[in-house]
Design a protein around this nucleic acid. Sequence first.
RNA 1: GUCUCCAUCGUCUAGUGGUUAGGACACCGGGUUUUCAUCCCGGCAACGGGGGUUCAAUUCCCCCUGGAGAUGCCA
Length: 494
Amino acid sequence: MSVRVRYAPSPTGLQHIGGVRTALFNYFFARANKGSFILRIEDTDRERSTNESIQDLYDTLNWLGIEWDEGPVVGGEYGPYIQSERSRLYAQYADQLIADGKAYRCFCTPERLDALREEQEKTKSKEKGYDRHCRNLSEEEIAHNLAQNMPYVVRLKVPTEGKTSFEDVLMGTITRKNKDVNPDPVLLKSDGFPTYHLANVIDDHLMGITHIMRAQEWIPSGPLHILLYEAFGWTPPLYCHLPMVMGKDGQKLSKRHGSTAVRDFREKGYLPEALMNYVSMVGWSYDDKREFFSKEEFCELFSLEKINKAPGIFDYKKLEWYNGIYIREKRDEELAALLLPYLKEAGFVGSQVSEQESSFFLSIMPLIKERLKVLSDVIPLTRFLYQEVAVEDVQEFVPKKQSLGDTAVALARAYEILKAHAGEAVEILEEQLVEVSKELGLKVNGVFMPIRVAVTGSQVSPPLFDSIRALGWEKALQRIEDGVKMLEGEVDDE
RNA sequence: GUCUCCAUCGUCUAGUGGUUAGGACACCGGGUUUUCAUCCCGGCAACGGGGGUUCAAUUCCCCCUGGAGAUGCCA
């Protein structure tokens, strides 16, 4: 039997790191086993499901290059793949369970349930959850309530005796006493929609899913799902619960740890291959040395046995490192194309980019490529080329352990030299500037730094002469002259 | 509270009944460099504790501790 796995998110928010990791593992597993990867949308929570979330799901998978073999948009023979379009199905199966005595209608109001929970909370009762109030309603009571049109939910009759186990590929056998399983969880809500438990079991069975790979937070529900399969008389798929992705403090990764939405990473300028690579390495490894994998390699080498059991902490720093590496591997043309949107957004170029602008931009790739950790870093790095620089504090010109006066003199001298030799070979310019530093008894940097600041507006920039050339000698000299004036003005004030 | 799961450097991890417990990120030094970055070299740093099993446990078993997750008409 060929492998069929699925990623089944609920569209109640933006796709986040944890979800995507689950999607990736399912996808890799399908590809590595020549199986099918199915996308299913579990939008049974009518309150929280949104179309925006569904769109974000598609955008995210497309961006990462994860194509699904069956699912919304592409279709497939087990559709529909959106649960809200399958409602009738779940109600039918729920009815079947009722008819078989495996489930029952519960007419308890949310108010009663709330009160019950509050009471249990207050008295620190050992009993948690539903009290099975409606489990043994008489035929008359049920008929009466139905006749009254009382809203109801359908609950599973969980056995109170015995225990239920299932095999997890990673964890081994997981067993839970039936009395510890949720006391009669809701299968069908009063709005007629199924809960996750019901929908997930029915769909996985109907869609021929062979392996369920989902986060470990689902382990406690495992026995419940097995009970459902048994109630239907179906054979459950193989389970493989994936370790969770945590934040720095060891808690489930969430917004307070930083960005968790894939969209945020994308906007900040992370490359899909870097994100894919890093996220996959949290919880999976190949061997003791290899840490770079392309999508194709994951699809070939991925295996369940190499998945780690323990949860992993998401390290933003390491992701950044991966991203820098992937950026540096880009060809100049590719990188420029990736960077262009950021330039537009910063207003450095208009929405229509001229031939000249783009070839100029291409020419500065070597200056910035190895300085980028994320694509958006291009903005501060190239600002001086597109906007006038504004040195706020005159101290900015002054290198460490050097006086303002010396700095002013150094920049003035440098200005004379650069003006006289503008456009000449770098070696000549360097030689002369080094000479100046010697004359003034300064470190070489004592002369270069003020020039850098004058030209780029910052102590941190691409190499000086490359920056000047990119900016153009005329503008550069003007900025240096402005810098000289600023420094001299300050010296006079003292 | 109850239940379930987990446990190697700060982090991601490799690994074995006998190893100097390996790599990567981060961090700290040093080198290259006119700054930053890149790059190169070096350093720091781990088997949670206690019992067993065994000639020998980081590795196998048990307990403890610690952590996490679940305990919803959310998934």
